[in-house]
Structure formats: C-alpha cells, structure tokens
Amino acid sequence: MDLVEKVAHILEGSFAVEDIKLEDDGGVIGYVVSNDFHGLEFMDRQMKIHKALRAGPTPLTAAELRRVAAIAALTPEEFLVWSA
C-alpha cells in the first residue's frame, strides 16, 4: 500500500468521508470532504486529521507524516463552492 492509499484508508476509517482526493508528487496534497468538519475551526480540523494519522491500527510513521504536506479538510457545502 503506498502512502496515498494508506492516508486515504486511515481518513476513511476515521471520518464519514463524502469525497477524498490525494496525490503524492514529492509530498501528499489533496482534500477530504466530510460532515464531521461542520462547526470546527480549521486548526481543529487539521488537529483531527493529524490525530487520526498518528493513531489507529496502522498509524503513519514519523517519516511518512512528514511527507503529508497539505490536506484541505472541507465540509460538503464548502467543497461544492470551492471546487466550482
């Protein structure tokens, strides 16, 4: 399982994911869309993502975590506008 698949797998297991798109080209970037981010400040969303990536049965190693550059955590409403 490559890093993108591993990150996606963890996020899908941690949040009610409606949409997710990640790519790794010298670092993982992308977005994850979930209703779980409603009412959360962006900092808190990112902390939740980090916590998920560091916990669970298959956590990322420190080296893998360093390769995760930016995953935008969006609600479905935000995504609808953002991706238009």
Binding site: F42, Q46, M47, H50, A70, I71, A72, A73, L74, E78
Partner: peptide, 16 residues
C-alpha cells in the same frame, strides 16, 4: 507535530 498541524490549518483556511 502540533505546530505542523497548526501551520497546515492556517493554510487550509487560506486555501478555502
């Protein structure tokens, strides 16, 4: 790691 997440959170806000 907390600081990294904070930095990413700020970028998340800007990107949106």
């Amino acid at each position: 790691l907390d600081q990294v997440a904070r930095f990413q959170g700020i970028m998340n806000h800007i990107v949106l």
